[in-house]
Amino acid sequence: MVNVLFVCLGNICRSPMAEAVFRQKVSESGLAEDIHIESAGTGHWHIGNPPHEGTLDILSEKEINADGLIARQVEKEDLDKFDIVVAMDAENLGSIQTLRKPNQKVEVVRLLDFAEQAEDNDVPDPYFTGNFDDVYDMIETACESLLQEVKEKWL
């Protein structure tokens, strides 16, 4: 079993969107029994809340299941539980790295490291910009490449 954790700031926009998109791609590829997927935020503001309305709207529009998506905060223990932690931007990446213990084997990456066409390595936060459509497109493309990487490297 490969364990993948997506992380953004509040766990209501980008990371739950990535969790839902990646979950669907994993399911469609027949690997739902082989890959466990969750999301979390570096901040505590939205713990226990469902995703942002803009995230839910775009997932519904794209017919992607959003059931079970509830915001939580990333914890030190997550870096022991998960094989791959996928940050949405440099700030999230830095926050995750501060939780990391020496010699932990978890792989910490940015999602757009898997998007060849990306102009920037950071997924912009639609909570502030409102650009849920653009963010969905970035996440969808990168999740496809991330799935290929997981299959080649971990399965």
Rank of each mutant, 00 (worst) to 15 (best):
G30L: 07
I96C: 03
T98E: 14
A66E: 07
Q148Y: 12
K153Q: 13
D57V: 04
E19R: 07
P50C: 11
N65Q: 09
K101S: 13
D80W: 10
N65V: 02
K101T: 05
V108N: 02
F82D: 06
D120Q: 11
T129A: 06
D89R: 10
T98Y: 08
A18V: 06
I64V: 11
I47D: 11
H36A: 12
I139L: 12
V2W: 00
A20N: 01
A87K: 04
I35N: 01
T98N: 11
R72P: 03
A18H: 06
T55Y: 09
I64D: 04
N11I: 07
P16V: 08
K153Y: 06
D80F: 13
N49H: 15
G43Q: 14
N49G: 11
H52P: 00
I37Q: 01
L9M: 15
D113K: 09
P102L: 08
V106R: 11
L146Q: 10
V2S: 12
G130A: 09
S29D: 13
E77V: 10
A142Q: 03
I64G: 01
P51S: 07
G54Y: 03
S95K: 15
F128M: 15
V4R: 02
E149W: 14
K153M: 10
D78L: 07
A118V: 02
E149C: 12
E144L: 13
K153S: 13
D113L: 04
L31Y: 07
R110V: 00
A32Q: 15
K105P: 08
L155G: 04
A18C: 07
W154Q: 12
D133H: 10
I12G: 03
E28V: 03
V150C: 03
E152H: 13
F22M: 06
L111H: 08
P16Y: 08
E107D: 14
C13K: 01
V7G: 01
F114G: 08
D134I: 09
P16N: 11
R23E: 03
V2I: 13
V26F: 02
T141I: 14
F128K: 12
V4L: 04
G10P: 09
V150Y: 04
D57H: 13
D89K: 07
V21A: 09
I12W: 05
E63V: 10
E77T: 14
L146T: 09
V109C: 07
C8V: 09
N92E: 10
C143G: 08
W45N: 10
N103M: 13
G68R: 05
G43A: 15
K81M: 11
D122K: 05
E63N: 14
E38G: 09
G68V: 04
S27Q: 11
F132M: 04
L56R: 12
Q24N: 12
H44E: 15
G30N: 05
V86L: 12
I37Y: 02
D57W: 03
D67Y: 01
E53I: 14
I47G: 03
G54R: 01
V108A: 04
Q24D: 11
L111P: 05
G41C: 06
V109S: 05
E33H: 13
C13R: 04
I35M: 05
D137A: 15
E144F: 09
G41N: 06
Y127E: 10
A32I: 11
D120R: 10
G43Y: 12
T55Q: 08
Q73H: 11
V108K: 03
C8I: 06
D134L: 14
G30F: 03
V86S: 10
E149L: 10
A18W: 00
P126M: 04
L56C: 06
N92P: 11
L112E: 00
Q117I: 05
I139G: 05
E53S: 13
